[in-house]
């Protein structure tokens, strides 16, 4: 677990230069980013041509432009937000808009002890780790063995394994594997109501915050009922929706009203039809946008 701080990239610490073994993010364009494990001698194929790690990446500064045979790309330092759009999906994942709200409403900060289930593809996990480092810890539970192993592997690759414990068990049956330690608990499972008592047990006796993410209102209903029965307070359900505005220049043509009798005498009417228009910078909304991800139910566990 020994590591030279600052010099090496990790998901919880910035570094300036790309090194062998780093995970870098190749930014192709707005909708297209890909993670790459930097390895001496390795190559990565992109639509703009090949990237040779030894020359194009290692020793370069994060944020540099890499020229390929058919264009160029930028190499970025990994962040949980970039990882969220780049990661290989093994499950449905949580996106940044929900993650941001969850992080604030769970009051995560350096030193927080957090329990999470299921780990899924690790999208939220990385964001939690970023917020609770360097002194916090994440206990995450994933009942799918292969997924649990895969995500643990990623944590090591991303140099955050010292901040997280992955447990391969059923949270509804076996709980989080810890008791009386958590400041916050997050649930993203099909039947969160079955895990509420385990969540309560995992939390500090002094209290803490809980969040449950569910796509369906029936799940919310059942969860809120159990939260109330278990003595949770300040139960509130919300939904956050992101709108992305596309900046563009539009041109609005002006109609031709024909010759104006008042000005007829002053200026001779132009022979060509008038194509006057007004150009302005504005924004448009996409024709379709994500209208629902899930309901976020928050609650406070009082002192017990």
């Amino acid at each position: 677990m020994e590591r030279v701080a600052v010099l090496t990239m990790s998901f919880v610490e910035y570094s300036d230069f790309i090194q062998d073994g780093d995970v870098a993010i190749i930014y192709l364009n707005h909708n297209n980013v890909m993670p790459v494990k930097v390895q001496q001698g390795a190559q990565t194929q992109t639509r703009y041509g090949v990237i040779r790690h030894s020359t194009d990446l290692i020793g370069q500064r994060y944020g540099s432009k890499v020229t390929c045979s058919k264009g160029w790309v930028h190499v970025l330092h990994p962040t949980p937000e970039l990882w969220t759009v780049a990661l290989p999906h093994r499950t449905q994942i949580l996106y940044t808009t929900d993650i941001a709200f969850i992080t604030m409403m769970l009051e995560l900060k350096p030193g927080s002890i957090v329990c999470e289930s299921g780990t899924g593809s690790g999208s939220l996990s990385h964001a939690i780790l970023r917020s609770i480092a360097p002194t916090g810890h994440l206990h995450t539970v994933e009942f799918h063995q292969q997924r649990a192993e895969k995500v643990a592997e990623e944590f090591t690759e991303h140099r955050v394994d010292h901040l997280v414990t992955v447990r391969n068990q059923d949270v509804c049956k076996d709980g989080f594997g810890v008791t009386g330690v958590a400041d916050a608990v997050f649930l993203d499972i099909p039947s969160p109501w079955d895990a509420v008592r385990h969540a309560k047990a995992a939390m500090k006796k002094q209290g803490g915050r809980l969040c449950s993410f569910s796509p369906c209102i029936e799940q919310v209903q059942k969860t809120c009922e159990v939260l109330g029965d278990q003595g949770f307070e300040d139960i509130s359900t919300t939904e956050v929706l992101l709108r992305e505005h596309e900046v563009r220049t539009v041109s609005l043509p002006l109609p031709d009203f024909g010759p104006d009798p008042d000005t007829v005498g002053e200026a001779p009417p132009s022979a060509a039809p008038n194509h006057a228009s007004i150009t302005l910078k504005t924004t448009t909304l996409p024709r379709e946008m994500p209208g629902h991800t899930g309901y976020l139910t928050f609650a406070t566990k009082p002192r017990t």
């Binding site: 919310v220 209903q221 009922e225 139960i235 509130s236 919300t238 956050v240 929706l241």
Partner: peptide
């Protein structure tokens, strides 16, 4: 360029 909407729910039987 983004903005978010926040919607609260009353959840009761």
């Amino acid at each position: 360029l983004t903005d978010t909407w926040l919607r609260h729910y009353q959840v009761l039987p």
